[in-house]
Design a protein around this nucleic acid. Structure first.
Length: 690
RNA sequence: GCCGGUGUGGCGCAGCUGGUAGCGCAGGCGACUUGUAAUCGUCAGGCCGUGGGUUCGAGUCCCACCACCGGCUCCA
């Protein structure tokens, strides 16, 4: 910030300064020139689109005087940085509007976020926002925009800042935080401090855009509220102050803001697109699964079509695991409390477990939230030799977790689910190699399900309550890091994100519209083998402790099902599609041929059926398309005569007429066997990414 | 768990300030016999999420609970 202090560069009237532009060229401008002045010199269009300026790597207001010799870049509204400025400024206007409508409201923080912004408030007398309020607030915001109020930056000492915000407890708390963390900020405080407008040491900055409203803020902001036109308030929500559920719950308003009406429109359209591929909606439309209220929150039933897709997913996984040296085991859904006491789960996660049932004179039984202790008992059922390692135990295990009522979400967050869970017991010296081959296996298999865009995340030792020595954590984390780095994928760090007993590496996948999902996780666990006293007899006849690797590939079958459903927008690739081909006889008297064709398709190993001619062909074609059947085979007079079929490939713009029956069957068989994502799903993946 | 919203036939929705439920799709039946995104007719289907309350009268108002949606917190 020092190089950008307002005094430098002001050489007095008549002088001039030189600044360097991003392309390396230099410009001579009168001293005292601002970012806005510079943009105007460069071009009218740039001047119009400019929202901020970067001076020597620091974002600043357009109104700031440029220092001599600075590297300067003008930030335009249609860039991600520019939008963040627009959104941040719009958040201020939101706060201003709320304060004028609810005198005495306390405003907390209001940062830009992906695609928008929010602002947190505490309303006087414990009042709450309601949906209808959004309209009023937005109306007031538009008035403020019409008034085109300038955003004026001010800097304050800590003392004067505290005085300025004397009646704003959250602002005071932020300023006090700035004062006490001078210099080095703690992890997690970044957002807060960014809001704080921490300026030069011991100072804070604020922006005033009318006599009535000033907000503590680092900036930069657009020059005036008139720049903020294309925004919309979207929803109200509760949010805890500083993200801590033990602190006050504030009232949050979310909004979105863009550089143009068109960009706003496109954003709203993207939201609609995401809604169209929402797995909960597709689950109903395609008759795949449901959540009967009679069963309970977060507990799904899979209908025949969904059950079929699921079974195909599982079968393929099972086969691949068998080929990769896994042994299949099963374990019960409930167990005596002692097992989870030994494992430590009751100590750590009791709140997330269903409460126990008391049987046999006070014996407590729990529904299992994890499979690992069971697999451990299988390992421990007899003495193990080093010759048996690595021992890979796999189970599609049903687990039950008591998720809090507000977090249950479709198939992605449920209370009962099936994990494709495996535990690998190996010698310590086998650990690194095992993890590497495991990661390769996982990525290969995920690719077979049609996902292809991955990155890895390494979650390290959490703060606070953990078990195990530092050396153990270090070794396990290093093994994961080495394996992760060898995959040729981006590896991002998630500091403190591990479980209490183990670090983990997770595979994140981007879907067809660019959203990321955490899928597979691999955890190296040195703790449970110890808690359960696991051993094996080594080659030199010593008793050694094995390492345990936890891993789930889908995570949960239900969740992975949902991810694929959304990724494909319901148009499963042929190998996964519940119905692969449907035969449509043009008239009733083609029924016999149609029946034979369907039988041939079935004999070729395909899932096929006939849709009889009780309705016009157009209606049946339409239904087939809406059901996203990969192949629709039309059979009429011409086809009966020539031994052909009219082939409608899902996603293709027009049908192919006169395809020989044998060729049609062969093509479908090939498509299904290849587990190809195209051609039959091509039409489902044309949406632009985000 | 917390904040806001929603809950009407299988699905999507309408039902104004309280007067006793309606539409489209889907479904059954009948006719139509169809060459590429909705043939016509007809019939049936509703404890208006659940339980209390106010009222002469509640889908409409009040309370509690349940479920779902959007967030927050959490996610072994």
């Amino acid at each position: 910030m020092s190089s950008a202090s307002p005094s430098s560069g002001a050489e007095g009237p008549g002088g001039s300064i030189t600044v360097e532009l991003p392309d390396g060229s230099t410009r001579r401008v009168p001293s005292g020139s601002t970012g806005a002045d510079l943009a105007a010199v460069i071009g009218r269009r740039l001047a119009r689109d400019a929202v901020a300026v970067e001076i020597d790597g620091e974002l600043a207001d357009l109104t700031r005087a440029l220092p001599d010799g600075a590297k300067v870049r003008v930030v335009v509204d249609a860039s991600e940085e520019g939008r963040a400025v627009l959104r941040h400024s719009t958040a201020h206007v939101l706060a201003q509007a709320v304060c004028s409508l609810w005198p005495g409201a306390a405003y907390a923080i209001g940062p830009p976020i992906a695609d928008g912004f929010y602002y947190d408030f505490e309303l006087p007398g414990g009042a709450r926002f309601h949906d209808e309020d959004l309209e009023r607030i937005e109306q007031r915001m538009r008035e403020i925009v019409e008034e085109d109020q300038p955003f004026v930056r001010e800097e304050h000492s800590i003392e004067s800042g505290l005085e300025l915000f004397a009646d704003q407890p959250f602002k005071r708390e932020i300023i006090e935080r700035v004062a006490t963390t001078a210099g080095a900020s703690e992890a997690g405080d970044e957002e807060l401090l960014a809001e704080a407008g921490r300026g030069a040491a011991g100072r804070v900055s604020a922006y005033r855009n009318s006599p009535a409203f000033v907000d503590l803020c680092r900036g930069p902001h657009v020059p005036s509220t008139g720049r903020l036109r294309h925004f919309r308030l979207t929803r109200v929500a509760g949010a805890y102050w500083r993200g801590d559920e033990h602190r006050a719950q504030l009232q949050r308003i979310y909004g979105t803001a863009w550089e143009s009406a068109q960009a706003l429109e496109e954003h709203l359209h993207r939201l609609e697109e995401a809604e169209r591929r929402d797995h909960r909606r597709l689950g109903v439309e395609l008759d795949l699964f449901s959540f009967p209220e009679e069963i309970g929150s977060g507990l799904a039933v899979f209908h025949p079509k969904g059950g079929l897709v699921r079974r195909i997913m599982e079968d393929y996984s099972r086969r691949r695991h068998e080929e990769a040296g896994y042994s299949f085991v099963t374990s019960p859904h409930i167990t005596k409390a002692g097992l989870f006491e030994t494992s430590g789960h009751l100590e750590w996660y009791a709140e997330g477990m269903f409460p126990p049932m008391e049987l046999d004179g006070g014996q407590r039984y729990y529904l299992k939230p994890m499979n690992c202790p069971f697999h451990i008992l299988i390992y421990r059922s007899r003495q193990r030799s080093y010759r048996e390692l690595p021992m890979r135990l796999f189970e599609f295990g049903n687990v039950y977790r008591y998720e809090k009522s507000g977090v249950v979400h479709g198939l992605t967050r449920v209370r009962g689910m099936t994990q494709d869970d495996a535990h690998i017991f190996c010698a310590r010296e086998q650990m690194a190699g095992e993890i590497t081959s495991l990661l390769t296996f996982v990525l290969d298999l995920l690719r077979d399900y049609g996902l292809s865009d991955f990155y890895l995340e390494l979650s390290t030792k959490p703060e606070g309550k953990v078990v195990g020595s530092d050396e153990d954590w270090e070794e396990a984390t290093a093994a994961l890091r080495v394996a992760g780095e060898s995959m040729g994928l981006e590896l991002v760090l998630d500091p403190g994100g591990g479980a209490f007993y183990a670090p983990k590496i997770s595979v994140q996948a981007r879907d067809a519209i660019g959203r990321t999902w955490q899928l597979s996780t691999i955890q190296v666990d040195l703790q449970l083998p110890q808690r359960f006293g696991l051993e094996y007899v080594s080659a030199d006849n010593a008793r050694r402790r094995p390492v345990m690797i936890h891993r789930a590939l889908f995570g949960s079958v239900e969740r992975f099902f949902a991810v694929l459903l959304e990724h494909y927008a319901g148009a499963f690739p042929t190998w996964l599609a519940p119905l692969q081909a449907r035969v449509l006889p043009v008239r009733d008297d083609h029924a016999e041929h149609a029946g034979r064709l369907a039988a041939d398709l079935t004999a070729a190993g395909l899932r096929a059926e006939v849709d009889p001619a009780s309705e016009p062909l157009g209606a049946r074609i339409r239904r087939g398309r809406m059901e996203k059947v990969p192949y629709l085979l039309v059979l009429g007079d011409d086809d009966v005569a020539a031994g052909t079929v009219g082939l409608n490939v899902r996603g293709a713009p027009s049908p192919e007429r006169g395809v020989p029956v044998a060729e049609a069957i062969a093509r479908i068989v090939t498509d299904a066997a290849s587990r190809a994502v195209s051609p039959a799903t091509a039409g489902a993946r044309r949406e632009p990414g985000q």
